[in-house]
Computed example of a mutant assay.
Amino acid sequence: MFQTLSYHCTMLYRSFSAYTSRRLQQLGLSYGALFPLIYIGKHPQCTQAELTHALGLDWGYGQRSILKLVEDGFLLREKRGRSYHLSLSEQGLRAFQVSHQVFFDWDAEALSGLTPEEQVQLMALLEKVYHIPLSGAISCTKP
């Protein structure tokens, strides 16, 4: 068995991605829609450029993702001047709530074998490990 941080991070990512994909699939969404929905839900009326920059997306990929979410009825896109502003539709708001909640639900499942004290210790240690600041990182605090 591998005993590297990178191995464990990869396994946790795969588990979270699979869990999240199953939950989002029920709404007709893919895992790729997770962070754009959360960002727009937390930053209503943001521009496409702000979203693309904050999430570190390739411009073309960001545009395609946004257009797909608009076509599928999750986002509203309004042109103001030279930029488009994004907000959630009613369907998008429901998807945002599920997308946001999935973090807490997966944590509860993944950490169920740890005591509350061990959970606090694990989070503190992980925060020390990823001391590299992430530009535009999304906060996953309870609303």
Rank of each mutant, 00 (worst) to 15 (best):
M1V: 08
M1R: 06
M1F: 10
F2K: 03
Q3W: 09
Q3K: 06
L5H: 07
L5W: 04
Y7W: 15
H8L: 15
C9H: 06
M11Y: 02
M11W: 03
L12A: 14
L12R: 14
L12P: 00
Y13V: 00
R14P: 02
R14K: 15
F16V: 00
Y19Q: 10
Y19H: 13
S21E: 12
S21N: 09
R22T: 08
R23K: 15
Q25V: 04
Q26Y: 01
G28F: 04
G28W: 10
G28R: 11
L29C: 13
G32Y: 07
A33G: 09
A33C: 14
L34T: 07
F35N: 07
F35V: 06
P36N: 14
L37S: 05
L37P: 03
L37Q: 04
I38D: 03
I38Q: 00
Y39P: 00
Y39A: 02
G41F: 01
K42F: 02
K42T: 08
H43Q: 08
H43T: 07
P44Q: 07
P44T: 06
P44M: 05
P44A: 06
Q45G: 02
Q45T: 09
T47Q: 09
Q48A: 14
A49L: 13
E50F: 01
E50L: 02
L51F: 11
L51M: 15
L51I: 07
L51Q: 07
H53I: 09
A54L: 03
L55N: 07
L57P: 04
L57Q: 03
G60I: 06
G62R: 07
R64M: 14
R64V: 13
R64E: 13
S65D: 04
S65P: 01
I66H: 03
I66M: 05
I66R: 03
K68H: 02
V70I: 13
D72T: 10
G73T: 00
F74V: 01
F74Q: 01
L75Y: 04
L76W: 05
R77M: 15
R77H: 11
E78D: 14
E78L: 15
K79A: 10
G81K: 04
R82L: 11
R82P: 00
Y84L: 11
H85Y: 15
H85P: 07
L86V: 10
L86N: 08
S87T: 13
S87C: 10
L88Y: 08
L88A: 09
S89D: 09
E90K: 10
Q91E: 11
Q91S: 15
Q91N: 14
G92N: 02
G92S: 05
S99E: 01
H100N: 11
V102N: 01
V102S: 01
V102F: 03
F103K: 05
F104I: 03
A110G: 01
A110C: 12
A110M: 11
L111A: 10
S112C: 05
S112V: 03
G113V: 00
G113P: 00
P116L: 05
E117V: 03
E118T: 06
Q119R: 15
Q119M: 02
V120P: 00
V120S: 07
Q121F: 14
M123H: 06
M123S: 08
A124G: 01
L125P: 00
L126Q: 12
Y130Q: 08
Y130E: 06
I132Q: 10
I132L: 11
P133F: 08
P133R: 09
P133C: 02
L134S: 13
L134C: 12
S135M: 08
A137F: 06
S139P: 04
C140K: 12
C140F: 15
T141A: 13
